[in-house]
């Protein structure tokens, strides 16, 4: 198939970027979206041009590296999948495809389609962990009873891959779904309950410091999350944060 690609090109975060047009012929429907970009880059390199920079790693929907805003939707038109899981059979011959980086003040563009998502790392470092005594006497996690409901819910929250689609799709560029998923993952489990107050306070504080917007509960994050994390996690985070302030 032949595609008209409109790709955001930006040298670095100091310069302004713009959309550049590329006509790409010979795209096969079995290619993944990232393979299509590889195909384009090969063509650009053969022609002596500058390849399009984009993030990728596992290419199997686990790492959360590939994060593109495709035709106005985070990770493209297929629900519940990452960009690397999107295949060209979802498009038609002659289609025009807009490809942009995830946009947020807290996700500055590094180059072309690559953005700096280290703000997510700093939020996690603020409290998304369990302090464990590693002296050799650590209790086996499996010896602590956890109800099936809580375990399932915590696991669902833990499926967040930190790709940033929630931020990209939110009109306020809010990172609350991400932060809420990380807080929920621990607060639902007995091991995580010990530090729940500090976790909620510290992670929310860091989230605000990074410059993300505030959630207005539109649900766009949930709709475009490749792991379909529920916004009920945000309600849980609100509860955790409010209770942590009351019991401080």
């Amino acid at each position: 198939m032949k595609l008209n690609l409109k790709i955001w090109r930006q040298k670095n975060n100091k310069t302004k970027g713009k959309i550049q047009d590329y006509i790409l012929d010979g795209v096969e429907e079995d290619m993944s979206f990232l393979e299509m970009l590889d195909f384009l880059n090969n063509k650009l390199l053969n022609e002596g041009g500058e390849p399009v920079a984009f993030d990728h790693d596992c290419r199997e929907g686990i790492c959360g590296s590939c994060s593109l805003f495709i035709n106005g939707v985070a990770h493209g038109p297929e629900r519940g999948t990452t960009t690397c899981q999107l295949h060209m059979r979802k498009f038609k011959d002659g289609d025009t495809i807009f490809i942009e980086p995830f946009r947020s003040r807290a996700f500055p563009v590094i180059k072309d389609l690559i953005v700096d998502r280290s703000s997510f790392d700093r939020i996690q470092q603020a409290g998304a962990y369990v302090s464990v005594n590693t002296s050799g006497n650590t209790q086996d996690a499996n010896a602590i009873p956890v109800s099936k409901e809580d375990a399932d819910e915590a696991f669902n929250s833990a499926t967040c891959i930190g790709c940033g689609a929630c931020v990209a799709s939110c009109k306020n560029s809010s990172a609350m779904l991400f932060t809420a998923a990380k807080i929920s993952q621990y607060s639902l489990l007995p091991q995580g309950k010990v530090e729940r107050k500090q976790r909620a306070l510290n992670m929310v504080k860091q989230m605000d410091l990074e410059g993300f917007g505030a959630c207005t509960n539109t649900g766009a994050c949930e709709a475009q999350c490749p792991k379909e994390i529920s916004i009920k996690n945000i309600a849980r985070m609100n509860r955790e944060y409010l209770m942590a302030n009351i019991k401080k």
Partner: peptide, 30 residues
Amino acid sequence: YLEIQNQRSRQVSYVKRSINNGASWASRNM
């Protein structure tokens, strides 16, 4: 105040953006 703050959290707008992004008109236009 929150609307102004939220607007500031995305300094460069998308060139193409889906109309609703899975959110209702009412929720996007409070």
